[in-house]
Structure formats: structure tokens, C-alpha cells
């Protein structure tokens, strides 16, 4: 990505006015001080639609500076429509450098994934959150859920796990599996697949969560305990694939299923596109790389 030399002069740096950024920073400090607690904030209207990452965008706008290098992913990919749109937005209003390389980014805004490459000290991961309230599906009222968090009366959420095991023999959640942050607040990990939940635990990176439409922020400071809810005899378990990534051969990454032709043939490929490309550049080869190139699967273009 080539950074623009200068940010759009018609708008303040990073779009939001300075008073709004200060409000957001105060809320973020509170969120970091109380890990997992949902801090209400006066969410602004953004030029992207609600539900399209306005919470994450506001956090990024509040903390981004000229020295930052920004990476934006959606579903793990840098080049999906909304990731491109958000990256363009920040390039326009801040002129910061953008990158697809996880290790080079100081700030990563994400929707639905945590990158496969481990994050390091000093990095900030900003999550776009559609529904911040992990109890919402059990209890529709906000006044009620806030009380439940205040009193830590988390019995009902375990009932769901109990019912799953009783009816199906295992817990059926596959994404948005609730987490207990710092032994106190139950929080929603946003709809990341539960595959990514363990990456949140004791992460060296600062994790910030923004729900623009629901007007809530929360945070997991670096090196904070994050436990995925489970029972002692039914420990939290990850989904596994029977085959490696068809393109790079990785056996430890989250895979997406891609339908490659009318005959319903399919292959499984890394959801983290940068990770997959890096591995291929290093010479790793998946079982169907040649075939993928022949069907012009767009992910295989060099």
C-alpha cells in the first residue's frame, strides 16, 4: 500500500473532532482499567453504516497517529470489500502507512478473526463488535443485563452450556463463545470463531472492542487472563479440520471452505490470507495448489 502524502484537508485528522477523540480515549482508559466491562460511550455517526464497523472505526480514529502502520482485515482477509473500504477511509483521513503484514502493523482493525501470526508487545488489535452483550440472547433488556454483570450472576449463561451437553453431548457454539475476562466479567469475543478464543488469553497485545450501534466499548489489557466458558469435565474444545490448507498446507490455521466448481467440489483454504501467502512465499505447498491455480481461484494469484 502506498500511503497518501497528506490527509484530506476537508476533514479533521482521523475524521473525528478532537473533543470526540478525547471522549473516546477517556472511555477506553476506563475500559482498560476494568477488563471486560462494557463502557457506554456517545457513539458518533460515521460515514460507514452501523453494523459495518463504526465502533472499531471510532476506536481506531481516537488512537491512530502519524507514526502508526495500519492493517485492516475482515474475516481474516485484507482484501475483502469492507476491509478495503475502511483502509481507504483511514488512508484518506490520516495518510498513515497501511500494510497487510501482521508483524509490521502497529494497529490492526479486525472483523471476525484474530490473525494467525502471534501478536506482540505494543500492538493494538481493534475489534468491530456487532452485539457486545453476551447475555442478550437470554435477556433482551439492557437494564437487566447490566445488573447481572454488576452482581456477577452468571448462572443463566452456564445453563445454555448445560443444555447443549444434555441435548447434544457437547457445546454447540462455534463462534461468539463467551469469555470470562480477568475472572470477573463475562464478555462477548465478537463473532470470532471459537478457534481464535485461546489467542485472547495472556496476549501481549492490547485488545480493544468497539460496538458503534450499541454504543459500548470494552477492553482486554495485555497479559490478561481470558477463559472461554466451559465445564471442568467438558473443557473448551476447538474445531479441527481433517485436511490441511489446500494452498499452503498449514495444519494449524482456521480454514474456509471454498466451492470451486459446479460439480460441488470444494477445498479448504486459510481464512488469514496474509498468513497463507507468507507460507507459500516461504515455499510451503498445499495438496491442491496447482489445481487451484488451474481453476483460477483468485486467492492464488501471486
Amino acid at each position: 500500500m502506498t500511503p497518501a502524502s497528506q490527509h484530506d484537508p476537508d476533514y479533521n485528522y482521523a475524521y473525528l473532532d478532537e473533543a470526540t477523540k478525547r471522549m473516546l480515549r477517556r472511555c477506553l482508559l476506563k475500559a482498560i482499567a476494568i477488563p471486560g466491562y462494557q463502557v457506554p460511550f456517545a457513539s458518533r455517526e460515521m460515514p460507514l453504516a452501523r453494523g459495518w464497523g463504526t465502533g472499531g472505526i471510532q476506536i481506531t480514529a481516537a488512537i491512530i497517529g502519524p507514526a502508526d502502520t495500519l492493517k485492516v482485515i475482515d474475516q481474516g482477509a485484507d482484501d475483502t470489500t469492507n476491509a478495503v473500504s475502511i483502509r481507504h477511509f483511514f488512508a484518506r483521513v490520516t495518510a498513515v502507512a497501511t500494510t497487510e503484514e501482521t508483524t509490521k502493523a502497529s494497529l490492526i482493525q479486525t472483523r471476525h478473526r484474530i490473525p494467525e501470526e502471534p501478536l506482540r508487545d505494543g500492538q493494538i488489535l481493534v475489534y468491530q463488535v456487532p452485539l457486545p452483550e453476551p447475555l442478550r440472547k437470554l435477556i433482551p433488556s439492557e437494564s437487566e443485563t447490566r445488573k447481572i454483570h454488576a452482581w456477577a450472576e452468571y448462572g443463566p449463561i452456564y445453563v445454555r452450556l448445560y443444555e447443549d451437553i444434555a441435548q447434544y453431548g457437547h457445546v454447540t457454539s462455534t463462534y461468539s463463545h463467551p469469555i470470562l475476562v480477568n475472572d470477573r466479567y463475562i464478555a462477548s469475543p465478537t463473532p470470532i470463531p471459537k478457534f481464535d478464543n485461546p489467542k485472547m488469553h495472556m496476549s501481549p497485545a492490547l485488545q480493544l472492542f468497539g460496538a458503534g450501534r450499541e454504543k459500548r466499548l470494552y477492553a482486554i489489557p495485555p497479559y490478561t487472563k481470558v477463559k472461554s466458558l466451559d465445564f471442568e469435565d467438558y473443557p473448551f474444545a476447538l474445531q479441527r479440520w481433517d485436511e490441511p490448507c489446500a494452498l499452503c498446507g498449514s495444519t494449524s490455521s482456521y480454514l474456509d471452505e471454498v466451492i470451486i466448481n459446479d460439480a460441488n467440489e470444494r477445498m479448504f483454504v486459510c481464512s488469514d490470507t496474509h498468513y497463507c501467502e507468507t507460507r507459500r512465499a516461504e515455499g510451503h505447498e498445499g495438496p491442491q495448489l496447482a489445481k487451484a491455480q488451474s481453476v483460477r481461484l483468485t486467492g492464488c494469484a501471486p
Binding site: R50, G51, Q75, P130, Y175, P191, S271
Partner: peptide, 29 residues
């Protein structure tokens, strides 16, 4: 309506990571 429309229409964004999880679960079950 601006909030409602945004959230409704965000269903057009890719959800294939979450859907992959559901797909795997339904097959397993």
C-alpha cells in the same frame, strides 16, 4: 432507521468464518 438499516444491511458483508463454524457443527451433529 439509519442504525437499523446499517445493521440489517451488514448481513451483506461476508460471514463465512462464522458460517464455516456452523457448517462444520451441522455436519458433525
Amino acid at each position: 432507521n439509519v442504525e437499523a438499516a446499517g445493521f440489517l444491511e451488514h448481513l451483506k458483508l461476508p460471514h463465512y468464518v462464522d458460517f464455516q463454524g456452523e457448517l462444520e457443527l451441522v455436519r458433525r451433529m
